[in-house]
């Protein structure tokens, strides 16, 4: 019986060159995955400065650990794992330091325009309603536990598949589906009031 071969990592060439000390190759990897990782970290922290610092740390850690990257997974999965671990560690430390929940600390972040989509500007009234909904949605997202928020961010916002998320979080697809189901129920309930008023 033949083992099904994994498709080659599309970043193999850039990774090899970066490992050999080509900083431009690593810059290319940063530019390729920067937006996605920014979205992941920002939706978890809801804080721009924290997101920036964490991204610097994530890419620095990846650059230093590149010599240990054995290619058992794709570079994309590997750097996502680094981002998830560092972000969750950061959130734990932040909670411990402050003794407050993230929701209390980052209340102002709910109004952050960067979290509000700006692609639907055709109908101003509808856009206002949509913005209100987005604010409510951001609040509801912050109330989710970190593992649930992580799964919603990766699946619903970043469009990753259950399988990809399971690989990154090193858990089963069943667990991912279960977390998503629970998180969706929470978000639906949180949006109920605003939804009734506007739609």
């Amino acid at each position: 019986m033949f083992r099904q071969s994994r498709p080659p990592d599309p970043d193999q060439d850039l990774v090899t060159r970066a490992r050999e000390g080509d900083t431009r190759a690593f810059d290319a990897l940063i530019l390729k995955y920067g937006d996605k990782l920014y979205g992941l970290v920002y939706h978890m922290t809801s804080h721009k400065e924290d997101t920036h610092d964490l991204l610097q740390e994530i890419f620095a850690r990846a650059y230093q650990s590149l010599k240990n990257f054995r290619g058992n997974s794709t570079f994309y999965t590997w750097i996502y794992q680094i981002a998830v671990n560092l972000t969750l560690n950061f959130l734990k430390k932040k909670k411990r330091r402050s003794g407050l929940s993230l929701n209390e600390l980052d209340a102002a972040a709910h109004q952050d325009p960067a979290l509000i989509d700006s692609t639907h500007e055709a109908n101003p009234e509808q856009q206002t309603h949509l913005n209100e909904l987005q604010v409510k949605l951001n609040e509801a997202m912050q109330k989710l536990s970190e593992p649930h928020r992580m799964v919603v961010t990766m699946f619903d916002i970043q469009g990753m598949s259950h399988g990809e998320i399971a690989k990154v979080l090193k858990t089963s697809e069943g667990t991912i589906r279960s977390r998503l189901h629970y998180a969706h129920l929470q978000l639906q309930s949180a949006l109920q009031e605003t939804w009734n008023e506007r739609f």
Partner: peptide, 18 residues
Amino acid sequence: MKPSIEQLESLLALKRYE
């Protein structure tokens, strides 16, 4: 009335453009 799962997913998907 709650938003349906599809409506919720559409709302969340808007964040992809950020």
